[in-house]
């Protein structure tokens, strides 16, 4: 109980009331970023299109987490949970994609060798 005993005097986590201004500004910035992501996708940036789209999506997700999900005003541990989940997911995605990019050429080469042989 030590942590909630020590957290209580400062501000009771979870009782922060979001002001209308911040809520509307959050929604508005999400709309603006949606517009930007649509616009940017219509310009051909080659491989950078993915990077831009993901960067904007991550920004939007951060805004949702901080304000709509009021993590900015919460016990830090809740943020640790979300970040840990995001990192594990990123680990999973990046390692498997890394591996598949490495072994696919071998499979294609083997595939062609089989076709040539038959």
């Amino acid at each position: 109980m030590t942590e909630h005993a020590s957290a209580r005097p400062a501000h009771e986590p979870g009782t922060h009331v979001m002001s209308p201004g911040i809520l509307v500004a959050t929604a508005a910035s999400l709309m603006v970023l949606t517009a930007i992501t649509v616009t940017s996708s219509r310009i051909d940036l080659g491989p950078w299109n993915v990077v831009v789209a993901l960067a904007i999506a991550c920004t939007k997700a951060t805004i949702v987490a901080l304000f709509f999900m009021h993590l900015k005003y919460e016990n830090r541990f809740l943020m640790v949970i979300l970040i840990a989940a995001a990192l594990f997911a990123a680990l999973f995605v990046s390692f498997v994609v890394f591996d598949t990019v490495q072994y696919q050429p071998e499979i294609r080469a083997a595939d062609q060798a089989v076709r040539k042989g038959s």
Binding site: F88, L91, F95, F98, D99, Q102, Y103, E106, I107
Partner: peptide
């Protein structure tokens, strides 16, 4: 424990670097 799953796949066609 989250970083070691590939050791079950050493002979499954996983890539050399993995």
């Amino acid at each position: 424990g989250f970083f070691v799953w590939g050791h079950h796949m050493f002979v499954s066609g996983q890539s050399k670097w993995a």
